[in-house]
Every structure is written in C-alpha cells, then in structure tokens.
Simulated scan of single mutants.
Amino acid sequence: MIVVTGATGTLNGATVEHLLRRLPADRIGVSARDVAKAQHFAERGVRVRPGSYDDPVALRDSFAGADQVLLVSANDPAADVVGQHRTAIEAAAAAGARRILYTSQHGAVGSAYPPAAIHAATEEILAGSGVAWTSLRYGFFGSLDQLLGPWRQTGVIAKPADGPIPWTDRADLAEAAAVILAGDRAFDGPVTLSAPAATLDDFAEAASELTGRTVERVVVEDEQWVTEQIANGTPEFVARLTLTMFQAARSGYFAGHNPLLAELLGREPRSAAEQLAS
C-alpha cells in the first residue's frame, strides 16, 4: 500500500488522482487531518484515516500496512516544522514502511533561501531514519500572478534583480511523484524534479509574445521593493522572505536542470511560457 499525506491539498491530491489511474484503489491510502475533506477518495475505495504531524499515535495507525509513505512538507510558519517532519518520519518507520518519500525543494542543500534549511534538516532526519528514503526536490511552483505581479494591467514585471529559477508546473510534479510511487525503479536519496529554469526576463519575453504587446522587465532595488510590498499590505517578514528568493536566484542557487522530470513524464515538462499561457 502507498499512503499519501496532504492529499486534501492541491499537490498531493493530484498525486493521488494519478495513482488511481495506475493502481487499484485498495492499494492507496490517505492520511488526513480532516478526513471529511478526503471523503471523495474514500467513496472511490481509497483507505482514509486521520493523521496529523502533531499526533504520532494517529500517524502510526494512519501509516499501518504501508510499503511507501509520501510525506508532504508542512507549511505552518508558527510551528516547529522540522519537529513535525521528524514525528512523521518516525511514525512511518514505526509503522513498518519500507520507503519514505518527502516533498523537498530544488537546491535544498547549500541554498541562501531560508526555507531550504527546513528541507535540508528533514533530509538529514530521513538519512538517519534507518528506512530507505527519497527526497523529491521539486522546482518552484505556485501562482505566477504572485511571482510576476499585475503585469497584465501594467505591462511591467517590476521585481528585484533575479536569476534563473526552475518554475515548474505543479501538475507535472504531481504526475511524476505518482510515476515514482507506482513504478518498480527505486530512487534513493534526493532527486531533482524541475522544469528548465527561467528568469523574469524570460517571463517578460513570453508575456510579450502571448499578448502581442511589450511587457517590460523593470529591476527594483531590494529595499525599495520591500517598502512597496509593505505599503501594499504585505507583512514585512513575508516581503523579506520573498526577497531572499530573488537574492538566492541571482546568486545562482537555483540554476541548473535535471532531465529526470521529462523522463518520468515521457514528455517535456511545461515550460514557463506554457504555464503563463494557461
């Protein structure tokens, strides 16, 4: 059995959908904090049990009988996220899982981007767990509107100086995870799953081609950008955390490309331009 956490969210929920296309439903389990939100899976024959990274007893029951457990990274900024990951890893090991998989991040080790430290620490815990493990180092994914700002209205992408970032389609990542989970090939340790990296200049060029009008890339000084974000209602800590992503990118921390994602998908992953057009 494969047990997936975070399946009521967009990313791992899509992974479960892809697993259902590859495996019988009775070989798939879901661990959810709110089982009511996973009812649509239960109705299709997926085993649904309650589980929280703050409740090791419930997690062990939720993971019982699992050959593989896919752990989604926690995202509560007020929580001890690394501690939560340790709890989940220990619960999976105690339940007898033969492999633990974890949704990590591209450039998890040695990055100047602070959230990467959480993934690096979690990978260390996995390495010491005594269980075979795979860290899925995903490329960046999420809302392009959040990344690029209101370019459709302004004709401008005004952000701090950046560098190449492997902005990757969430749907491609979910499908690749399902391919790994359902397949016979073992992936040990960290594996990078990302689309080719793109800069904001690349996005501006793609946006110009998409709309037929010039979309300009404007570089804003770091502190000016933070000040503008705060003035627009963004909490300062969020603005400064986002700034570190741009700073790390322009230092080359997210550069590079691994063809594994395309290999798993059997096609090229969606490019930055294709994602922008969707």
Rank of each mutant, 00 (worst) to 15 (best):
R44E: 04
L11W: 09
Y102W: 05
F246G: 09
G65T: 00
L144W: 13
A97W: 00
W167I: 14
A7R: 01
Q229I: 01
A262V: 04
L59I: 03
A91F: 02
T87Q: 10
N12T: 02
L136C: 04
T122F: 09
S278N: 11
V4G: 01
E43F: 06
P160M: 12
G130Q: 10
A171N: 13
R27C: 04
V16R: 00
S208V: 04
I118W: 09
T10A: 15
L136W: 05
D55S: 10
L126S: 05
V131W: 03
Q39I: 08
A108L: 11
L20T: 02
A78C: 06
A95K: 05
D188R: 05
T168K: 02
A121G: 11
P166T: 13
T242S: 15
L264K: 08
T214P: 05
F246W: 14
Y253E: 15
R213H: 14
E274M: 14
F187R: 05
W151K: 06
E17H: 13
L265C: 04
A58D: 02
A58G: 12
A273L: 10
T199S: 11
S73E: 03
R213M: 11
A92N: 02
W133E: 03
T234D: 08
S208G: 08
I125K: 08
D54K: 13
T168H: 06
V72E: 06
A38S: 07
E236D: 07
N12F: 01
E43V: 10
I118G: 09
A197G: 12
I89G: 07
D169P: 03
G65Q: 00
P269D: 14
W133Y: 14
A198L: 06
P164F: 09
A88N: 09
R240H: 01
V16A: 04
D80Q: 09
W133F: 14
I118Y: 13
T242M: 15
V3E: 00
Y253H: 15
F187W: 14
S208H: 00
Q229L: 05
A272G: 15
A186E: 11
R217K: 05
P190L: 07
P150D: 10
H40T: 04
P269N: 13
F237E: 12
V72K: 11
A108W: 04
A74I: 09
A171R: 14
F141P: 05
T192P: 03
A277V: 07
I118T: 13
G6M: 00
V30D: 04
L136S: 05
L265S: 09
A177Q: 02
P166I: 12
A177P: 01
A38N: 06
G183V: 06
M245N: 12
P160T: 08
L136P: 02
E228M: 09
E274P: 04
A93P: 08
A161W: 11
R86Q: 08
